[in-house]
Amino acid sequence: VVFIDQLASEDFRSLRADMAILFAVPEAAVRRRLAQRIGRLVLLNATAGDCDYIAPDNRLAGRLIAEHLLECGHRSIGGITFDDRDPGSDFRQRLDGCAEVFDAAGAALHLTRISALKFSDARFRRKLVEPMVKAGHSALIGGCDAIAAELCAAVFAAGKRVPADVSIAGFDDQFYTQFMLPALTTVKYPAEAIGIHLAAVTDELLAGRDGHIRKLVPPILVKRASILNLPHRTEGEEE
């Protein structure tokens, strides 16, 4: 296992391999350097036009979340994701998929991009999401479950309730999402299927065949209690 910040090290420059699995989207120049020394590069969890990949269909995942929110009557939606502008990144694809559906329906997606580095520091985490909570949207989307969980905490800190006042959704179906109060609506990525495809392409390579693959694996929408169906509001509840 080699971390991305080790690519320039002496040990890594001497590495030779028939196949490398990249759990990231390194820059195209980095991928080209790797391809000069490694026979086959396979990206996991992301896509790139110049590389094999096995990835969840993140754009479809965004569409599933957006369609569910529209079905529940939401038309003003806020989104927070990490500031990853690479077209093949999972965070970019997820919110692009959401935007496609909302645009087609004439609904508004108000998107904010935040620093992943700052979000990892507890001193900044709440401040990064608070403005979106105060914006008055009926639903909020976190680019991953960790962002969605922080949005839930910020909603409660503001004296509001999820989902009675604000509906919230995330991505990844992390283990803790089912234990949140309320349990979080999110998207599950079939890791087993991704592993099966990776094993198959590895077998092809070992057998002397080309082993090329560009595979998108469909995700699964997990509906839980964090999204309110607006048409079913009882009389007297706030909009």
Rank of each mutant, 00 (worst) to 15 (best):
V2D: 06
V2F: 10
L7G: 07
S9W: 09
S9Q: 14
R13F: 06
S14Q: 15
A17I: 14
A17W: 13
I21N: 00
I21H: 00
L22W: 09
F23V: 12
A24P: 04
A24Q: 10
A28T: 03
A29P: 05
R32Y: 02
R32C: 05
R33L: 13
L34M: 13
L34A: 03
A35E: 15
Q36C: 08
L43Y: 08
N45Q: 15
G49W: 04
D50V: 06
D52H: 09
D57W: 06
D57P: 09
N58S: 09
L60G: 09
R63C: 06
I65G: 01
I65A: 14
G73W: 04
G73Y: 00
H74L: 11
I77P: 07
I77M: 02
F82Y: 15
D84C: 07
D84M: 07
D84I: 14
P87L: 12
D90T: 15
R92I: 00
Q93A: 13
G97R: 12
G97F: 12
C98V: 15
C98I: 10
C98R: 08
A104P: 06
A105W: 07
G106Q: 08
A107I: 01
L111S: 11
T112N: 05
T112E: 14
R113S: 11
S115L: 02
A116P: 02
K118L: 08
F119L: 05
F119W: 01
S120D: 11
S120W: 03
D121C: 00
A122V: 10
F124P: 02
F124Y: 15
F124I: 02
L128N: 11
V129S: 04
P131H: 04
M132A: 12
M132H: 05
S138F: 04
L140I: 01
C144W: 02
A146N: 11
I147E: 01
I147Y: 01
L151G: 02
V155H: 06
F156W: 14
G159D: 10
G159N: 07
K160V: 02
V162R: 09
P163W: 09
P163T: 10
P163R: 00
V166D: 06
S167M: 04
S167W: 04
I168G: 07
I168F: 11
G170E: 06
D173E: 15
Q174L: 14
Q174H: 10
F175Y: 13
F175N: 08
Y176N: 03
A183N: 02
T185H: 03
T186D: 03
T186C: 00
Y189E: 14
E192M: 11
G195D: 04
H197Q: 11
A199Q: 10
A199S: 09
A200H: 13
T202Y: 15
D203T: 11
L205S: 11
A207L: 14
R209G: 08
D210W: 07
G211E: 06
R214Y: 01
V222W: 12
K223D: 03
R224V: 06
S226Y: 04
I227Y: 01
I227H: 07
L228S: 06
L230V: 09
